[in-house]
Amino acid sequence: MGFTFEARVMWETAPLLLSGLALTLFITVVGLIIGFIFGVVMGFAKISKSRILNGIATAYVEVIRGTPLIVQAMFLYFGVPLATGTRIPPVLAGIIAIAVNSGAYIAEIVRGAVQSIEKGQMEAGRSIGLTHAQTMLHIIWPQAFKRMIPPLGNQFIISLKDTSLLMVIGVGELTMKGQEIISTTYRAFEIWLTVAILYLIMTFTLARLLRILERRLLVKGGA
């Protein structure tokens, strides 16, 4: 039995796949925005001298990093409602899972970048009378942010691809849409190829955007 490549299937199913892609993008963007905020808060908590903040942040990072995203998502979607009595819509559960998950890795990125700034910068800021917070905001953060971009880019790409795991909780994102189409058309080759290309376009675009941002920031000061 011969295999014939049917490009026609790719075009016919495109609208359905694109609706999945839109949801993938939506969950990625919203999840990462919240994840970035989590990450910054937890990253600074890890640096902080307060034992309590430090403990909370460390526990958060260890628990999230130490368990698979797929388990976190299923726990959130299937497990938590049994205890609380309220169901969470799958998309919301997906966003929370991506946010909480990426936040843990971003926390480490933020911590690393902030701690990589030479000690003399904090001393110089304090020496002109700035408070610790002012020095963080005006001196340390802008420099640290520049150093965060490459690892952040990595994490963003990982999180984007990780949204495909959310199909286990019934989120109709790109991978799930692909699966659905295959179950009625049986064109696994064409559909998975299309799905793969769509992911590639998204990750490639994201990488380019981050590189542009990095270059813009590098123009200012270079270091």
Binding site: E123, A124, G125, S127, G221
Partner: peptide, 26 residues
């Protein structure tokens, strides 16, 4: 610290700011 300024061995200028911005920040 505004009364007693400090000049460091390694300058510790803020690299993301121009010379003028370094001076005017305080």
């Amino acid at each position: 610290r505004t009364e007693a300024g400090m000049v460091f061995q390694n300058f510790n200028l803020f690299p993301h700011m121009t010379a003028l911005e370094n001076v005017t920040l305080g």
